[in-house]
Design a protein around this nucleic acid. Structure first.
Lengths: 204, 204, 204, 204
DNA sequence: GATGAATGAGTTTTCATTCAT
DNA sequence: TATGAATGAAAACTCATTCAT
C-alpha cells in the first residue's frame, strides 16, 4: 500500500471516530439537553474512552459547538437551499416557515437546545451558532428587500422584520410543542407567512 | 418600643436581607448568566455568609426562581396593567411592543436569562416562569380575540398568532441589542404592531 | 411578693422551660433517632428559640445526654426498685427480663437509641449512660452473687454472667421487634430467666 | 504483553486501589468510629484524591457498607465454617463463643461499629449487615433445633434462644474490653456455652 | 493514536453555635 | 432571660481535564 493510500485510510478512520463522537453527543443532546452532556456520557455513548475525546476535540466546548452545529445542519441546509433558489419572495417565506415547523416537529427536544444555545451565545463573542443565526436574519432580510424591490412588500426596516419573522416561527413551534402539535404544519406555516404578508387587519 | 413596632422592624429587617440576597442574585444573573449563579457568589455579592442563604431560601432553585421572578416583575406588571385597561386592541399591541422594547433596552442582559428560563422551563413541568409565559400568550390571544369580535382583525388561530407576536417582539429586542440599539423604540414598536396588523403586502 | 418567693417562682419557671426542652428532645429522639436530633428541631419541638437552648444547656451533647437519661429513666427506676427489694434472686432475674421486654415493646424506637448510645459511649470516656450501663451490670452481678451465696446458683464469674444476661435480654427485645412482637411478654421473660437458670440441657 | 495479561494487570491494579480505599476506611472506622468516616479522611487515609473514591464507589454509603462487610468478613467466615461442619451442637456453641471472643479481643474497636451497624440497620430496611445478623440468628437457631432433635436440649423457642446466645456473647465481649480483657478466652467461652447449656442452677 | 485511572477545584447543603438586641 | 438572624466550618458529591502506559 502506498503512502498516499495509507494516509487516506487514516484520515477516513479519524473522520469516522470523530463523527462517532459527534453522533453520540447529538443523541445525548436531544435526549437530555445540554445539561445532560457530560464527557463521561459522550464517551460511553460513542463507545470510546474518555481520553479519546481529547484527541479529537480540545475541550468540551468544542464538542458542544460541533454537536450543535451538526444538529441544526439539516435545517440550515434546507433553509439555505430554499432561500437560494428562485421562488418568489412570498413563497419563500411560507416555505421557510414550513421547514422550521417540520424540523422541530420531529426534533422537539432541539427547541430547548436552540434557546439555550442563544444563552451561551451571548455570553461569548463570535460564537459560531450566533453567527449562523444572524446570517439567517441577513438572508431573510434579503428576501424581504427583494420583495420590496419588486413592489410586493411595503418598504420597511427589513432587518428587524426578518428577525421578527424568524422569532415568530419559533413562537409557533413552541405553541405546537406546548399544545401537543395540534393542527397540520402546512396550515400553521401559511398562517405565519400570511400574518406577515397580509397582517391581521380586516379590510372587509 | 411596643411589640407591634418591634415585630414590624423585624419583619423589615428580614425582608431587607432577603431582598439583598435576591438583588445579589439578580446582579449576578445579569452579569454572568445562570451558569454564573453559584451559592458562593450569591453570598459574596449579597455580603452575607453562605449559610444565610439557606435561612431565607430552601435551596438554590428557590433563589433562582425568585431572582428570575423579581427580574421580570416590572415588565410583567407593566404588561399586565396594559392588557387590563380599556385601550382598543390594536393600541394594546403597539403598547405591548413598546413596553417590551423599553424593558430590554435598559436591561439587555436579561434577554439571555429570558431565553434560558424557557430552557429550564421545558425540562421541568409546571415551572412558574413557564406558566407566566403561557399566561401572557393567553392574554395576548384574548386581545386578538377581542379584535376579531370587534371586526377589527380577520378570524384566525389567535393562540398561535399571540405566540408569534410575543416572539416577534423578542426578535426585535435581539436585533436592537445586536445592532447597538439603533432606531428609536417607538418606531420599532410601531413596526412590530404594524406588520402584525397590516402585514407586509403592498396594496398600492 | 418577697424575694424568696420570687426566686422560687423563677426556679420553677426555669425548671419548666428546661423540662420542656428535654421533652421535645425525647419526642424527637423516639421519632427520628439520634440523627434526627438537631438543635433547630429541638427548639421548634419545645416551642422556644434556638438561642434559649443554650441558656439551659451548654451544647448539644448536654441535651442529648440529658434526653437519653430521661428516656431511660422509667426503665432504670423500675429495674432499680426491682433489684433493691427482697424477692429471691431467681425471681429478680425473671422480673428484670419482664421489665426490659415491656419497656421496649412500648418504646421500640429506643432500642436504636440504646445501641447507638453505646457507640457514642465508647468513643468518649466517662460517659454517663455508659456508667449507668455498667452500674446495672454490677447490680445484676450482685444478684447473682447473692444467689451463689444462698447456694442457689453455681459459683461462676458473676460479672460476665451479668453482662451476658443483660445482653441476652436485648437479644430477645430485638427478636420481638424484628418478628413483630410475637408471643407474650411473660413467656419470653420466663424463657430468658429459665435458660440462664436451668440451661438448655435436657436432663430427662 | 498479550491482551490477556494486560487486562489481568489492569484488573489487579483496579482491585488494588479499591482495596486501598477500603483499608483506609476500615482503619478510620476502627480508629474514630462511624462518625469519623468522612470522604475527605478516607481519601487522605487511602492516599488518593477525593474524586477517586467516587470512581470506585457510588457514594459514601457504599464505602461504609463495603468497609463494614470487609471488617467482619473474617469473623463471618470462621463462624460460618464452624456452624457448617459436623461437630455436635454443644461443641458448636462453645466454639462459636470462642470465635467471637477471639475476634473482638484483637479488634476491640469493632465492637462499637458492630452495635452502630445495628442502629443503621434498623433505620433502613433490607440492609445487608442486618441480613447477615439475622442469618446468624437463624443458623444458631438451627444448631439448637438439631440439639433438641437429638434430645440434647430441652424443647424451646430456638429463635429467641439463638438471639439471646449471640447477644450474650457480645455482653461478654464488652465485659472483656471494659475490664481490660481479664481471664483467658477459653474459660470465658466455656462459661458462655455452659450457662446456656447447663444454666446457673446449682443441682448440688 | 487510544486508553481510562486519577485528579482536585468547585458546587450544594447542613447545622451547631454565637451574639446583638 | 429570651430571642433568632447570622455564621462558617465541614460534609458529600460532580466532572472536565490530564497523563502514564
Amino acid at each position: 500500500m502506498d503512502d498516499y493510500k495509507k494516509q487516506e485510510r487514516k484520515k477516513n478512520l479519524e473522520a469516522f471516530t470523530r463523527q462517532g463522537i459527534l453522533d453520540g453527543a447529538i443523541d445525548l443532546l436531544m435526549r437530555d439537553g445540554i445539561q445532560g452532556l457530560t464527557m463521561d456520557r459522550v464517551a460511553a455513548e460513542a463507545g470510546v474512552a474518555k481520553g479519546t475525546l481529547y484527541v479529537y476535540f480540545t475541550n468540551k466546548e468544542e464538542i458542544l459547538d460541533a454537536a450543535l452545529d451538526a444538529s441544526f445542519d439539516p435545517l440550515i441546509r434546507e433553509l439555505s437551499d430554499l432561500l437560494d433558489d428562485d421562488r418568489p419572495p412570498d413563497r419563500k417565506l411560507t416555505d421557510f416557515a414550513l421547514c422550521n415547523l417540520r424540523f422541530f416537529d420531529e426534533r422537539r427536544e432541539l427547541i430547548r437546545v436552540f434557546f439555550f444555545d442563544r444563552e451561551r451565545v451571548h455570553s461569548k463573542k463570535n460564537h459560531y451558532a450566533d453567527n449562523r443565526y444572524w446570517a439567517f436574519v441577513q438572508r431573510v432580510s434579503g428576501v424581504l428587500d427583494e420583495g420590496i424591490r419588486q413592489g410586493l412588500f411595503v418598504p420597511l426596516d427589513s432587518q428587524k422584520a426578518a428577525a421578527m419573522f424568524i422569532e415568530a416561527n419559533m413562537g409557533v413551534v413552541m405553541q405546537r410543542i406546548h399544545g401537543g402539535i395540534s393542527g397540520d404544519v402546512e396550515k400553521d406555516a401559511r398562517q405565519i407567512a400570511n400574518i406577515f404578508m397580509e397582517g391581521l387587519r380586516n379590510r372587509k
